[in-house]
């Protein structure tokens, strides 16, 4: 019974479906937090979760379990049968940039709190009238 389930889960198309549905569920959970939570730290956290789900989708959509990591190691002499290195390179830089931009947003929030003592985003309405 367990062997049947494991071999079913090991098919390529099933792995692709798990990656697709899982990362999109994470994206929707981030959207849920963005719509329901009102504290500014929770809002930034929801955006970070959505970002993380996109990274997972980007890397997982080119995954092939018969290939190796794109690094020459013991036994490999040629760059064949390797996973696609382009999404790896793009996500590598995107993670670092995302953290720096998150720090920028947090610093805006800190300065705003020092001026007005507000952390609830529903009450940030100085520009309204």
């Amino acid at each position: 019974m367990i062997e049947i389930i494991l071999s079913y889960l090991n098919q390529d198309i099933v792995i692709q479906k798990i990656v697709l549905i899982g990362s999109m569920s994470l994206l929707l959970i981030g959207l849920f937090g963005l719509l329901t939570q009102r504290h500014i730290i929770k809002v930034f956290m929801s955006v970070a979760i959505m970002e993380s789900s996109l990274f997972l989708f980007f890397i997982g959509s080119t995954f092939n379990k018969n290939f190796t990591a794109p690094i020459l190691g013991d036994g490999h002499v040629d760059f064949i049968h390797m996973n696609d290195p382009i999404p790896h390179a793009m996500i590598l830089t995107a993670i670092v940039i995302g953290m720096a931009v998150l720090a920028l947003g947090i610093s805006f929030a800190i300065e705003y709190f020092k001026l007005t003592s507000i952390t609830d985003i529903d009450r940030m309405n100085e520009m309204k009238n």
Binding site: T62, P70, I71, L72, G73, D78, F79, I80, M82, N83, D84, P85, I86, H88, A89, L92, T93
Partner: peptide, 22 residues
């Protein structure tokens, strides 16, 4: 496109293909 870049990256003499791309 990934296979083409992997084939090209063997001319640069770098073992880590991600480093070559970045």
């Amino acid at each position: 496109a990934g296979n083409a870049l992997l084939a090209l990256s063997s001319h640069e003499g770098v073992a880590n293909a991600v480093t070559t791309v970045v």
